[in-house]
Design a protein around this nucleic acid. Structure first.
Lengths: 220, 220
DNA sequence: CCCCGTAGTTAGACCCTATCACCAATGCGA
DNA sequence: TCGCATTGGTGATAGGGTCTAACTACGGGG
């Protein structure tokens, strides 16, 4: 609570007001993104909805890209919270998968902001990669758990044993590294195609495909 | 060749000129997309590079969205050609995977134009879904081939047996349907994350992960 | 109480898409 | 070969976007 106070109420009244307006801008930005996609986000439109003139927003965000970067940062933070929250409340790998899916469906455009098509040349700020690492760490924890079907040794696992920089200090064997990567890429494969509407009209239920992929990762 | 003539040289000189200019516009559009991404595509910039004024392009494409739709159409066509070409020259499921990957790496933005983040509310024209079906059909052919590791029966396969509208008239059993879906989603999972740069800095080789996923689909 | 920093304004430069009216050239039928 | 409708290209313009610059109004700390 002290932390919440420090974020929400600390400082001078001016700073509190500033933080409040920034939050409101972001709120409208998310609504607009959910409705029209990130590429259609317009500072002018946000300003009008807030009852002020366009250039006023530049007191709060240096540029449109700055605002979007901030939103991406928040999205990463939210994702990290969701999966680490699930992990810390005892969820196994299936639970993490469920948490990931419900986080994605809760706001598809938010998921696509993180994992969708990037602008060539865009470089994510430092702390987003930190959040990505946190998610990875939770995945690696779950991937190393006992009771999972054994992944047969493969050339990839030998490769991963030699290229595990991304795992940091995490004490996971190459089978766990492999499982974490497979968890990520397979679930992203189903989720992103579903959220992008590529399953639309095919007639089957994406949730069941997702479940099947989760079971395949677990090892049956 | 008769078909090529019909496309490239048929009709009056006016029609030939028109088709030629349209092709040149598309060429510049692809260059711009490859460099800056589809969201940064500008008709004005294309016109300037071609040495003419902005509004002139509207003689050839009714709107920016129209041009992009046409590019998506061409991308689908190109993808369909690539995988059906591989299939018709005797490639097995591994060959299809290799063809898909090399098609994707050849022009990442082209892949992302097809499978990347869509604009909410955008509806693909009819013939793109036709190309998607052709790709699916090639996949289903390969997925039904003998010599593949058996996919154990699962709840998903029962579901797919009842929801196979997307397979059309194709005589594939539910195991083949399952394998085709898994082929698509898993390889897309690796490819899209790779092309979006999410593996950047992780240190491992995406190609080896891709290969491992292909082997997993084949059934080892 | 004054004063300075901050929030907000309008004006404007420079992009973009898109439409319009007008001009020029081209190639077809008579 | 000539006339002329069709077609391609132009500048002007409307309207929206980002973003900068100059100016005004307010409110809290000295």
């Amino acid at each position: 609570m002290a932390a919440a106070q420090a974020e929400a109420e600390a400082g001078t009244p001016r700073q509190r007001y500033r933080a409040q307006v920034q939050q409101e801008i972001k709120k409208h930005a998310w609504e607009q993104i959910a409705a029209e996609g990130a590429s259609a986000l317009s500072l002018n439109a946000i300003a009008k909805r807030m009852g002020m003139s366009g250039p006023a927003l530049y007191r709060y965000f240096a540029s449109r890209d700055d605002l979007i970067t901030e939103l991406i940062r928040d999205a990463y933070q939210s994702l990290s919270d969701a999966v680490r929250g699930a992990a810390s409340s005892g969820a196994d790998i299936r639970g993490l998968a469920a948490a990931l899916r419900s986080w994605a469906l809760e706001d598809p455009q938010r998921y696509l902001l993180v994992y969708g098509t990037p602008v060539p040349g865009y470089h994510a700020p430092e702390d987003t990669t930190r959040h990505a690492s946190e998610v990875m760490a939770a995945l690696l924890d779950a991937s190393g758990a006992e009771g999972l079907g054994a992944m047969p040794p493969s050339p990839l696992q030998e490769h991963l044993a030699d290229h595990r920089a991304w795992a940091g200090e995490h004490p996971a064997d190459s089978a766990a590294l492999h499982r974490a990567l497979v968890f990520w890429t397979r679930l992203h494969g189903v989720l992103s195609l579903e959220l992008s509407g590529h399953f639309g009209g095919m007639g089957f239920d994406p949730a069941q495909l997702y479940e099947a992929e989760v079971e395949a990762v677990v090892g049956r």
